[in-house]
Design a protein around this nucleic acid. Sequence first.
RNA 1: CGGAGUAUAGCGCAGCCCGGUAGCGCACCUGCUUCGGGAGCAGGGGGUCGCAGGUUCGAAUCCUGCUACUCCGACCA
Length: 439
Amino acid sequence: MRLSRFFLPILKENPKEAEIVSHRLMLRAGMVRQEAAGIYAWLPLGFRVLKKIEQIVREEQDRAGALELLMPTLQLADLWRESGRYDAYGPEMLRISDRHKRELLYGPTNEEMITEIFRAYVKSYRSLPLNLYHIQWKFRDEQRPRFGVMRGREFLMKDAYSFDIDEAAARRAYNRMFVAYLRTFARMGLKAIPMRAETGPIGGDLSHEFIVLAETGESGVFCNSDVLDLPVPSDDVDCQGDLSGIISQWTSVYAATEDVHDAARYEREVPADKRVSTRGIEVGQIFYFGTKYSDAMKALVTGPDGADVPIHGGSYGVGVSRLVGAIIEACHDEAGIKWPEAVAPFTAVILNLKQGSEDTDAACEKLYRELQARGVDVLYDDTDQRAGAKFAAADLIGIPWQILVGPKGLAEGRLEIKRRSDGSRENLSPAEVVAKIAG
RNA sequence: CGGAGUAUAGCGCAGCCCGGUAGCGCACCUGCUUCGGGAGCAGGGGGUCGCAGGUUCGAAUCCUGCUACUCCGACCA
């Protein structure tokens, strides 16, 4: 992508409403624009990141055996009356009526709808286990939206729903999602710690929140620093195999949000030098809720003995749009964002330090073509701004690799490559640059 | 949902007390000079001053009502 043809409305000054760093940087980097309280338009740069995150979530859900579908944003009120949540959900639910005065709502979550779909088709225990998920916009009419996309009213969420014949099978489904979540967040460059959590209004008795440690997080958290060094399951983990060893490894180390924090146990189990008391951002939560919805909505399957039984369910959410902010909270410095490569809007940016000069133009064009040919997502800053402005913009938008092409280096046949994450620099030949980034 | 504020150009702000027909910095456009860490000079474009009423010869400014947004707290993927 040529920057001169891209849409990147960078701001030099800080918008006054943005209090936390991720919100400030997202606005300054031209990633989002606020359209109403807690409602954002995703501009091209932000949209690229959102899509990368979404794709990682999707790949790990698929790996875990979940099946993607897509449910609508609007749902009929009657569906929610069946579960009893239409009234219980309260003013956070956005209620709408259509021209026929039918009552609808903009979905804040989809347990009811997925249960309705499930019960319409699945009749036998032999169709289980089943895990269906979608990645769709949700709306929760928060009393006080804030912190940009970290707590918007409209947000993109991955929500998966598992269906199993009994509790033991449901716990295996829960474990598969637990492992998928460990992998998902690690692939994005985040340390997300699973913490025992309250089940809240969704119900059930087993739940973990996945928390990214950050001073600007909304909830207080307490954990044993050992949990930060636990190994994340690798690519070849057998999701259909026995995962209980991994789960117990992760859940035996103390980690809790302030809501369920047990100070006595914390002090008893965690040595003083390993106590971490900080704040965190919730990026995912998983629940096992048993037969709560299948009882209320009569989602029954016929078991091996011929008797109908309610299925055991779980639901598993990832805040996809929130993750964009969470990653920035975890990865930035004074100059701007430092995207982990896996979610970066572009892998590399070419900075032509003397636009209009024959030598640098030719070298940049060649490099740009070669990187593209090698499948690298590359941004070419071909604007006629001065070098300093290009450096500042590149640092701000956080592209992992900056390739500096200027007359000084070219005189010796060299380009300078700067790594955004640690600021390290190397002088390399063009071929070496291509090999390093594409290879 | 309690409390406190704000609304003037794309962004950040001044002007309002004391009414007289809107200004500054950044950004944008043109030209020249610059050119490896957010350049300089000169010229230029852009605002029914959140909306609706009222007072007045005259309202960004005073009065009334409304709306939107922000911050602190209680609450949430």
